[in-house]
Design a protein around this nucleic acid. Structure first.
Lengths: 355, 355
DNA sequence: AACTAGCAATCGACCTTGCCGAGTGTCAAG
DNA sequence: CTTGACACTCGGCAAGGTCGATTGCTAGTT
């Protein structure tokens, strides 16, 4: 029994790999099934079409390529793309001009995370002609810089939290009783003195503890202050769950592989639902560097025939979000992957720019 | 010379109108060109197909219908739809269940304009199976309830404006020098005493006047306070220009009349550009009640084959935005128009709910 | 043993043809 | 003014045919 005959999952030999690479490059370029004659011309090897057919039959047996029907060349399978991406990709880094544009447009928005994310999404979308997607940074470590209370009409109070010295969060609290302005001010001063510079999560924990201790002493004023603070520091809707910004979805329209209108609609609905896409991107949060999900690998049938290339980005050396693109499986990986990589780095550095 | 022969723009006679109405109702229902036999069956008049053909020829001469080609029935032109909508529409108001759903889901979000607008957009989109679009309320009259300053890192100061007793605006100001906390507090107290309850625009004007008067007295502290305030009340980016929320764009996919992929893409690009759509909706801001733009009437070629049904909504008896839907010219006007009307009223009342 | 050439078979893409049905315009008769 | 009859037009559909590309296989070559 030869190795071949056993039909196990060993990688194909060098020649077959070269041919697979040529085939995938051709297919990505042309978008049409590649036949043996074309490969014989383009591979660089001086092999006849007949020989190539034999190799192709092997590759098909091993599941790297498939034929849409008898007598239309071969197209890569997800497994074929995976091998291609893993072991035989020749990266083409973006040109200096593109890098410069990225840097310029991102640095322009340094200091405003929301604008940065939007810009990054639009930039990668524009440069790749695919859909760009960036999750908004999650507040992993949110240290309290300042808190203020402002009385609104009725029993409502506006809590303003300044976090990490630059981001501002507003929370409107509906309270049980009216708090006069000076009481609000006193509460603010107390909290600022007590908790400035600490993590929000930690503050919450301490407040609970204090509340129990103080309640025993029946100090009404203190209890109220702490209750007020607890409300302000309560988990905010949207605190934990991430959000994302998508740009250039329209680039996906008119792509041959998504010509099925119904599939395209479901894809767009997935974009506005966000849930599945976010779950997928979450997986890139852990793991370093560029992650690539090819076709069914994502696990979401909506993304069949689509690939996702994503890279985490950091703030203060912690991963806080993911930048990536979504496009057809047949995308120019050799250009997209380095671009996503660089864009994620630039976004990180723009996020960390202090002003 | 008979009236007919003069070929002027007089409306067609009753019978022709009835036939036109039947034709349009048929076409909206079926989506296919309507022939003379169908009309003869459905019109209720006992006329033969031949007679109807004569009437149709007249209607075509007057530009109310057109034939895609010889020997395919007739379809309405924009002008035909216009006459239909203006003079012979039989409204079908939405059912109680739908009205109840609208009211419930909107009242749930009373007090949060942004959430209201999003919900309204999704609701009308869902009920009509078209794209829902709502402009966010413009702050026509913004009376200052309260202003507070919070020092941030560096020379930056966060200004918090509470407007109309409920809406909160944050503005980060990059200042020339450092303002210590007590100076910020004094400025806040001064401005609150001076301007509480006044219109933002008025405040701006008064500040300019005060600045000139005070400058002559060389009161450094006062000048600085006023400069600070001026910055806080400066025209905010996005203050003047409106924004909007679109929901259910995907409903437009797969509609026969938008099957042209390229047209669909341009339409979606117009959605994300927003500019043209906003201009169009602006026209509905003035004018009362439901406005309808049919096909080319909008003046934007992107919206050819599309109609826009929109109605302004109010806050404190002033028009502050527009609620509407975008769909194919061939839409069920008799259901959509009353729905948009009611939805706009409900949005108004939800906006005016005090809590 | 590896490679190649040749060949038949297969299949999709594309075009033509013919035909059907739906629809129109016209005309003469009622 | 209405009607039925007739000729004509056009899109859609199915059947059939050609063309080209590609494959699998086999037999021959290096």
């Amino acid at each position: 029994m030869t190795e071949q005959a056993r039909g196990v999952e060993e990688p194909p030999n060098d020649r077959a790999q070269l041919l697979l690479r040529t085939l995938i490059e051709c297919y990505i370029r042309e978008g049409e099934p590649v036949g043996s004659r074309t490969l014989s011309r383009e591979s660089g090897l001086s092999l006849s079409a007949a020989t190539i057919r034999n190799v192709m039959a092997d590759l098909e047996d091993h599941g790297f390529v498939s034929s849409p029907h008898t007598s239309a060349g071969r197209i890569p399978t997800d497994k074929g793309y995976r091998l291609f991406v893993n072991t035989m990709l020749r990266y083409k880094p973006p040109g200096m001009a593109e890098i410069a544009e990225l840097r310029r447009k991102l640095e322009l928005r340094a200091g405003d995370p929301k604008a940065l994310v939007t810009a990054a999404s639009q930039l990668v979308s524009g440069l790749t002609h695919l859909a760009g997607v960036v999750t908004v940074p999650r507040e992993t470590h949110a240290s309290l810089s300042q808190i203020e209370f402002v009385g609104l009409s009725g029993n409502r109070v506006l809590a303003i939290l300044v976090v990490n010295g630059r981001e501002v969060q507003n929370r409107v609290l509906q309270l049980e009783r009216f708090f006069p302005p000076d009481e609000l001010r006193r509460a603010g001063t107390y909290l600022n003195d007590q908790f400035r510079g600490q993590e929000l999560a930690g503050v919450r924990a301490q407040l609970v503890k204090q509340l129990q201790e103080t309640r025993e002493q029946m100090n009404r004023l203190m209890t109220d202050t702490i209750t007020l603070a607890q409300r302000a520091f309560a988990i905010h809707p949207g605190d934990g769950e991430a959000d994302m910004v998508i740009a250039g979805e329209t680039n996906l329209m008119g792509l041959a592989e998504l010509s099925n209108v119904d599939r395209l609609r479901r894809l767009f609905e997935a974009f506005s639902e966000k849930r599945d896409i976010l779950h997928l991107l979450d997986q890139s949060l852990h793991g370093e560097g560029v992650q690539i999900f090819i076709g069914h690998e994502s696990g979401y049938t909506i993304l069949d025939d689509c690939s996702v290339v994503a890279a985490p980005y950091t703030q203060d050396d912690r991963v806080v979000g993911v930048l990536g693109v979504i496009g057809p499986t047949r995308m120019a990986y050799e250009r997209v992957i380095p671009l996503v990589d660089i864009a994620a780095r630039m976004l990180s550095s723009a996020l960390n720019l202090r002003d």
